[in-house]
């Protein structure tokens, strides 16, 4: 019974968001996703040929386990944009309701919050696929081929990334409605994740204490799995410990987020009414 309700809540949210997006935001959202990632990849491509002369420094191969800089960058930039997209949908779901004046209605509806947020994530994953096909065309046009060392590992890495971002989004969404502010918090989260979690460069470059800080985010271990099983030449078994760490951290963030969400919702309602 409870599962059936949760399923219906999630599905209804996905469908509603699909209809809304199709009618209200036709192109700007897609352009906003594809463009930054495509430009980052193009930046790396031009730098690689014009400055590096088609080579990279020795410390890159040591840190990343590959000399395929462009493939590494393409995977990283795509994964980063995917993270941004997912956070924009999932973490901003509640504050969007708040801004539109429907948060109160949502809170008294008999639907639980987790399936509702999962509905947004499901929509974000589905809509991102279309955008990433476009990005794939850009990557192909630049002649970048991405080696796949372990297909099941890459799938596991991608799933771990989705779980990690979802887990981060639940608590972040709560913070946003309590603060009544999304712009500063979302951009700060994006830029911190982009710097710390090893998306577009090996984390060995960062100073030691910053590397430790990066371990606090589940996305870091998920990116290790994704990079390792695509360009890094590792199998899923090699990276199983990192996968486990990512999932454990995600579980911790999720529990924290779900526990604190009612408190944030209360604060948001007290502030509004």
């Amino acid at each position: 019974m409870a599962t059936a309700t949760a399923w219906r809540t999630g599905r209804a949210t996905t469908l509603r968001t699909w209809h809304m997006t199709r009618r209200a935001y036709p192109w700007t959202y897609a352009v906003g996703t594809v463009l930054p990632a495509a430009l980052t990849i193009a930046l790396g491509y031009l730098g690689f040929h014009a400055i590096g002369g088609g080579e990279t420094g020795a410390d890159f191969a040591k840190g990343s386990g590959t000399s395929a800089y462009l493939a590494y960058l393409a995977v990283g930039a795509t994964a980063f944009q995917f993270t941004v997209r997912l956070i924009l949908w999932s973490a901003k779901a509640l504050i969007t309701e708040q801004r539109q004046g429907t948060l109160g209605a949502l809170l008294i509806a008999p639907a639980t919050r987790l399936p509702y947020l999962l509905g947004f994530t499901a929509f974000a994953v589905l809509s991102s696929i279309a955008e990433f096909l476009t990005l794939g065309v850009v990557i192909g046009a630049l002649g970048i081929s991405i080696p796949v060392a372990s297909a099941p590992g890459a799938v596991a890495g991608a799933l771990a990334l989705i779980v990690a971002v979802f887990a981060l989004s639940v608590g972040l969404g709560g913070l946003m409605i309590a603060a009544g502010e999304a712009h500063i918090s979302q951009n700060t989260v994006f830029i911190v994740l982009g710097l710390l979690c090893g998306y577009t460069f090996p984390r060995d470059y960062l100073p030691g204490y910053v590397r430790w800080l990066a371990e606090a985010f589940p996305t870091t271990a998920a990116m290790d799995v994704l990079h390792g099983t695509l360009t890094g030449g590792h199998t899923l078994t090699d990276l199983a410990p990192r996968l486990a760490i990512s999932l454990l951290l995600s579980a911790a963030y999720l529990v924290l987020g779900v526990r604190t969400l009612p408190y944030f919702e209360r604060r948001a309602v007290e502030r509004t009414y």
Binding site: L43, I51, G52, G53, T56, G57, A58, L195, F201
Partner: peptide
């Protein structure tokens, strides 16, 4: 923070053995 990310992203090509000759 963006400056740091850009610097690290470009570091692999800037430390290539040929880089100093080109730039």
């Amino acid at each position: 923070l963006q400056l740091a990310t850009t610097y690290y992203t470009l570091r692999p090509v800037a430390t290539a053995s040929d880089a100093a000759a080109h730039w």
